[in-house]
Design a binder for these strands. Structure first.
Lengths: 201, 201
DNA sequence: GTCTATATCCAGATAGAC
DNA sequence: GTCTATCTGGATATAGAC
């Protein structure tokens, strides 16, 4: 166990798991150049692996995107579920979700950009459009519950969801596009206030 | 002046302006299949013109997308400006803008989808990212003015803009994706109420 | 399971007749 | 200014050695 383990005696140094390198390189390229402007060859170069490896592991460019997409989708769902588990009030849950999203946008810009900007229909032609909105469905459930229990005013649940989270997500997009200069976290209180108290003075 | 004017004596019947047919076909295809999944040949077939014509008029696929994009952008800016001209209060202006956008989404689904979903950066590599957010800048001006005059509560202007219009646009996307079944116009009052009165009961 | 070299296909773009 | 036929580059994907 002490020495280098058998099988591969070639330059095993400095190499990290291959799949990870491929995914990381792909995410970077997809985010910055767009899925369709990236060739398998680009990924191969950036990840410092061979074309063969890519096809072995993922079956092609679509395969990489698919894996990235679902991975990040699950991550986001987990984020929402943790917020639900850790907070009881609707307001508390919403605040926590937005806080986590803001944080995520600042610390993992590429992942957030990929999720928000990629039209998954263009590289996952057969998947339902629903999954684009999957996290939104979870969010809607939170709002719906709040309306039913009377914590929120009676209104259409989709409207409530869009008002709170649609606004937050738009801010993230403006931030990613460089339109907003301040770190998102500095806007969190205003976002929650605007959603809960409204525009009216 | 009475008869058919000279130059073109060939089958002039039933043919509508060529440029229009190309633009219409392209919008349709781009919206449904995505810019990168559409070939010039697809457009050529759908529009019932020759490849030569397309390159004569637009110089290529990018040229078509560019023209479509700017045309629709101007349309949207005009929409906002008309709302500003016809209403004085911030609330009135916002309501009118959202109403027009909702209407537009229902009557010209493809145009709205193209504007909301296309990542212009992928086919207009050299244009500033700002122009994606151009209408948002106009919207922000409206909100900013309202905050300055005291019609709205003091808050970050981007937050206010995102809360009101980001929410509305998210609803449009959910509607275009088939997640929301009702015509958007039925949600207008709720949207405005949610934005102005907030979530709180 | 990782690599290189190569085959196949198709999109974007052009040339030149009419 | 509209068309057909054609060129060219590059992308996906595979074959087969190691």
């Amino acid at each position: 166990m002490a020495g280098k383990s058998s099988t591969n005696t070639t330059t095993n140094v400095d190499v990290s798991p291959v799949r990870e390198r491929i995914l990381k390189a792909a995410l970077q390229l997809f985010t910055n150049k767009g899925f369709h402007n990236v060739s398998v060859h680009d990924v191969q170069q950036q990840a410092n692996v061979s074309i063969g490896s890519i096809y072995k592991h993922f079956g092609g460019k679509q395969g990489i995107a698919k894996e990235l997409y679902y991975h990040l989708l699950r991550e986001k769902e987990a984020l929402i579920e943790s917020a639900i588990a850790n907070h009881d009030s609707v307001k508390g849950r919403c605040t926590e979700i937005i806080r986590l999203l803001f944080e995520h946008a600042e610390t993992d810009r590429e992942a957030m950009s990929f999720m928000l900007n990629s039209r998954h229909k263009e590289f996952l032609p057969d998947e339902p459009p629903i999954c684009n909105a999957a996290p939104f469905v979870l969010m809607r459930d939170i709002m719906k519950a709040g309306i039913d229990t009377g914590e929120l005013r009676p209104m259409d649940a989709w409207v409530a969801t869009a008002a709170v989270f649609g606004g937050a997500i738009r801010l993230i997009q403006l931030r990613l596009d460089g339109i907003i200069d301040q770190p998102l976290i500095t806007l969190l209180d205003d976002v929650i206030d605007a959603a809960w108290e409204g525009m009216k003075i």
